[in-house]
Design a protein around this nucleic acid. Sequence first.
DNA 1: GCGACAG
DNA 2: ATCTTGTCGC
Length: 264
Amino acid sequence: MMNVEYDENPSQAQKDIWAREQSELKLKLIEVDDLSFTSHEKDGKIEFQGLCYIGGVDVSFLENNNQEAVASLVVLEYPSLEVIYEDFKMIKLKLPYIAGYLAFREVDPLLELLDLLKQNKPFIYPQIIFVDGNGTLHPRRFGLACHLGVLANIPTIGIAKNFLHIDDGYNMTMAYTKIKAKELLKKGGDYYFLQGDSGVIWGAAVRSLESTTNPIYVSVGHRICLETTLRLVSKCCHYRIPEPTRQADIRSREFIRKNFPNNS
DNA sequence: GCGACAG
DNA sequence: ATCTTGTCGC
């Protein structure tokens, strides 16, 4: 039987409603530090004080089935970056992926996982969450990381592996991004701001390690500024993808392998 | 009409 | 997002 709740092709009218909802929620967005920890830079070295728990969230998919997926939440201890908590939730997606509207597809199960953790182990509830997707690097400056942050009232950071095109002139195109990356990301830790013709800074392209050329795209989610975001990301990269989102991704796929051995 | 488009 | 072994290099 078909899943009648799945909307294969949301109308333009529906997208307009979603866009308005994003604009409404954006009124609550905080793009300055509003954190339970502090950061300092002494002698060029970054230090965080009072930071113990960082969250990571992701959604992974089953083969053969574009409607079933697994949402994951992990908590890492800082500064060891060791995973001390993991939880997964099987979900039925009600929407396809639509660029600019990712939150309407994924945010609900992530909120549920956060609520569950808050109920059961409030003492390790994360002080900030790394989200697989964008924050302010979004056509309406309100991507999944902002959406989750505002709804859960928690600081968040957006981490994207691919660049999302924003209509703000040629310097916000993929072509220009690649040119700039080659030009400016000479070594590990280098970054540059993604600034459109309007002058708005949407986020930053970051070369997380010396050993990787392909940048990640980092942006503010909620209750943190871009500068602090970049500092924290730099402290969380053992590989190209920062540990919180990387672990959420690895472990949710592992969960699928274990529970759905032959979904091929 | 064409191009561009997080996961 | 996902399929997918080897392989080149530190």
